[in-house]
Nucleic acid binder design. Structure first.
Lengths: 349, 349
DNA sequence: GTTTAGCACTCAATGCATTTGAGTGCTAAC
DNA sequence: GTTAGCACTCAAATGCATTGAGTGCTAAAC
């Protein structure tokens, strides 16, 4: 039996009225206010009775006995799951988002940055984007390029996704044919190997096999390991933290600081986004539903984005539990969709 | 005649006492407090008289008539210019900073990020680093690398400083010898040319000369222009904004927000750092001395860092006007020095 | 002439009582 | 089942007295 079974249609409408009102005013909502502002055709007294019921079953709570009601966490959850209707976003807006992303198409990190910015601006909350990762990613190519008598540039091309470079010093200058030999050997061993398989042991093996160039190869290996590691660190792009300060619930510097701390810990946010990516569908985490203590006063709406049906990343918006869920859900879904499309064009090459 | 001529030695000591006390307590300082806490050998009454004089000449001000005194902007300026002695930083700390930077030596942007982090942690204020730029920078090399049948990677090596890459699509696959030809031609035209000289017109010229490959060359040119432009945007790395929230003057979300807005506008901060770089020595901007309206409640200590005597960037710390100047100046100078040294090793290759 | 003690005065901050008003729960009438 | 009426509650606002750190001024001491 569902834990929601006690809610009839009128209660639902009242819960909706309370939640909608509280979301836009940030003030506890009383029975009179609802009777006045929402055309439910019942008197304040009736609403009071219903609200008392809703409080008994845990959907509403009272900050103190003579204040109005506000939705509890359970109330928000019910609202999100069964009441709210995600607002459509106007075609015009859709077009604008699409165009902004298209403009940034040239570079992967520009796209993610722009996405974060768009999300933050549209939602007026803090936004983040988990850069595309792919467990199926393979090393497409590893190229050493001589850029100076004693400098070699290591170029890593990963498919789908990104390119990384790193400078490496060499003791002596390598002749073009030596470089060509090293390159073709390295590629024969590493090409199309999943990143997850490229570890220290494989690289050691190769170093041993190319003993004569051990100097270069060792440095290269080290660079490769570092470059692959760095991916994770760089994975989350954030924008719009400053919007946090606009929210009345974070008027107190103490609580604002808790949220900023939360945002500063990369793993919390990236963990959440990774979960969403793996889950493969939009998720709404409300207050203490998350395990992180500082998240009790926040909610996060996050959605994966996919290329050819495969989720390769996620985006999210963080705001107060009194978040404009309907609007944010619409935005997040829309942006995730667009991002997936843009990336399809970029990555499938 | 100096505008400071009215200040005798005792006034100086009192101004110092007031400023030191206010910097550490953030509370207006009264005559009794000074007589108690600082061993000046004079009574509160005398201190009162002197403070009245200091207020008349504009070094102190009173928030309201029955409160203690706080330093005015002019007072801070005098303190910074003629009173404070920059604290030495312990050798131990110097070593720690040096080691942290050494560890990050591998990559330019890791070094700047680590520098910002160190600055923020040591000062407990917000910190930023203007990445190395060099007006003497030249394009050391431009290399096209085939990474896929239809994809060419443009690699730009700039000396001193950085490497940039960009993917470019080609209509048809280029043969290795064609690529070699293009490469050697591009390098013959562009090698060792100062970045400032590489503009659209020069690139157009080259495109015209290599008409047969116009497809690739045009795309490459576009990429080059973009990559060179992007340098500016990425120039400033920030850290420790959250420290702002710890300062009592930013307890009110309103004022905190003003500072965050300030930090979010990249040009303000980068302009300030560029000025410092050009000035070539440490600068302290106090409150409204800056032209930016939101900076009236802040101060910035900034210093250039140099490689082989030539300033190539700058670092800075932003805090409330009630900033611990002596400490911050010491830290900023020290870190700027270390950064310069580390970069000398990295960039002179 | 400079320094200091003494004293009256100021004013933000604090504490306390009072008022206000939005909101509730309960009961009885519709 | 719904609603009107009413007594009750309590946070927030308001008013008011108190406190205390701090000042400026004056006159005495050095």
């Amino acid at each position: 039996m569902s834990p929601y079974s006690l809610i009839d249609d009128r209660k639902k409408r009242i819960l909706q009225a309370v939640t909608d009102d509280y979301i836009s005013t940030a003030e506890p909502v009383g029975s009179r206010t609802i009777a006045r502002r929402y055309d439910l055709g019942i008197s304040p007294a009736t609403i009071r009775n219903e609200m008392a019921d809703l409080e008994d079953s845990g959907y509403l709570e009272q900050p103190h006995v003579s204040a109005g009601r506000i939705p509890s966490q359970k109330g928000y959850r019910f609202y999100v799951d069964f009441i709210m209707q995600t607002k459509g976003v106007s075609d015009e807006e859709k077009l604008r988002i699409r165009r902004r992303l298209e403009e940034r198409k040239r570079e992967l990190n520009l796209v993610t940055e722009e996405t974060a910015r768009i999300l933050a601006q549209l939602s007026n909350y803090a936004a983040f984007v988990l850069s595309p990762v792919s467990r199926a990613a393979v090393l497409k190519r590893l190229e050493l390029v001589q850029v100076d008598p004693q400098l070699v540039l290591v170029v890593l091309v990963v498919d789908p996704g990104f390119i990384r470079t790193h400078l490496v010093m060499t003791e002596r200058q390598l002749k073009p044919e030596q470089l060509a030999y090293i390159n073709s050997y390295l590629n024969s061993r590493l090409r199309d190997i999943p990143l997850s398989k490229i570890g220290v042991s494989l690289l050691k093996e190769i170093t041993a096999e190319l003993k004569e160039y051990s100097n270069v190869i060792e440095a290269t290996s080290e660079a490769v390991v570092q470059l692959l590691e760095r991916r994770q660190e760089e994975a989350v792009v954030t924008d719009g933290q400053i919007n946090i300060l606009e929210q009345p619930e974070f008027r107190e510097v103490e609580s604002a600081k808790r949220v900023f701390d939360l945002l500063a810990e990369d793993d919390t946010v990236s963990g959440l986004l990774l979960d969403t990516m793996n889950a493969g569908n939009i998720r709404i985490v409300i207050g203490r539903e998350s395990s992180h203590p500082n998240m009790d006063i926040c909610s996060v709406v996050s959605a994966p984005y996919a290329v050819e049906g495969v989720p390769i990343g996620a985006i999210g918006v963080l705001g107060p539990t009194r978040m404009h869920y309907a609007k944010v859900v619409a935005i997040v879904e829309l942006v995730a969709g667009h991002l997936g499309e843009i990336l399809s064009k970029m990555l499938v090459m």
